[in-house]
């Protein structure tokens, strides 16, 4: 009897261990597949030249630049709004009902599928505001998409600052704003940074919101203003993997594009982890 329940436990735990390492295996499989195939394509020329021969040769330079523009554009829009919003919720708001309402709205916004943001961006920015398919419209759409992430991470970071720090600052005669500026924000900064970096990863990988707001199949030159269309890495990968002029011939380009995308995501994850650890060490001293 006692033995059978011990054997049961052993079997169950082995299965769970197997599953967990199975997940690790899936990750290694996906990354390995992309990196192994991508590294054979990747070169300085691939990163810095334009697509050629109907996307079957050449590089992905305009797509990389387009993604960088979109990241910058959406951050300019979302970061100040998100951070200010979080500061209000965690530092100022006294009306708990209002705070609860905002939190529910933020959660709901975060749960809306990205394609719905695409529809919304198309209706509001592209048509109603008349921006057309443009970097501006795409950045605003992506910005709306990441605002909930910015708000949540900032709020958590602010909440992690001990109340005694604030009280200490008040006791020294500092005003609320001074306390936030000089005490709360600097301490919360590394955690806020981590959240921002993770949302950069999100923006650079999203495809559905940019399909109808900014993305172009091919552009012979770089966008000149925020009212121009742009190419973007995730859309580029989607197009050449599914509907290129010659899907077999453009497969290497697809591997290369996926490799660059994955590298961005990996770098961002590592960077975020590193920043968190670095500042944790500093703060603990």
């Amino acid at each position: 009897m006692i033995r059978s329940k011990n054997i049961q436990q052993k079997i169950a735990f082995h299965i769970f261990r197997l599953l967990s390492f199975g997940i690790l295996g899936i990750l290694v499989w996906i990354l390995g597949f992309i990196i192994y195939n991508g590294i054979q394509v990747i070169s300085w020329e691939f990163i810095t030249s334009y697509p050629k021969e109907g996307m079957t040769e050449g590089g992905i330079f305009p797509a990389i630049i387009g993604t960088i523009y979109l990241v910058i554009g959406s951050m300019i829009f979302a970061v100040p709004l998100g951070i200010m919003s979080a500061i209000y919720i965690s530092e100022y708001a006294s009306n708990q009902k209002w705070v609860r309402f905002i939190r529910i709205m933020t959660n709901n916004l975060a749960s809306i599928p990205s394609i719905v943001f695409g529809l919304f961006g198309m209706a509001l920015f592209v048509h109603t505001f008349g921006f057309g398919d443009s970097i501006l419209a795409g950045s605003l759409t992506l910005g709306i998409l990441i605002i909930p992430i910015v708000i949540r991470t900032t709020e958590e970071a602010l909440k992690a600052v001990p109340e005694s720090y604030r009280l200490g600052s008040f006791a020294l005669g500092a005003t609320k704003l001074q306390t936030i500026k000089n005490v709360v924000f600097p301490i919360a900064f590394p955690n806020i940074m981590t959240g921002l970096i993770l949302s950069v990863g999100r923006v650079s990988g999203e495809t559905a919101p940019i399909l109808f707001t900014v993305a172009a199949y091919f552009l012979p030159k770089l966008p000149q203003s925020i009212f121009d269309q742009a190419m973007a890495l995730p859309y580029h990968l989607y197009v050449i993997a599914t509907s290129g002029t010659d899907i077999e011939a453009s497969k290497p380009i697809a591997y290369g594009t996926a490799f660059v995308l994955i590298s961005i995501v990996l770098t961002i994850n590592l960077l975020a982890g590193w920043i968190r650890r670095y500042f944790e060490k500093q703060n603990s001293i």
Binding site: I30, T207, L261, N269
Partner: peptide
């Protein structure tokens, strides 16, 4: 966490 960070278009390609 990394698995969560991979863009959906990469999953689609895979």
């Amino acid at each position: 966490e990394l698995l969560a960070g991979i863009p959906s278009v990469v999953y689609g390609f895979f």
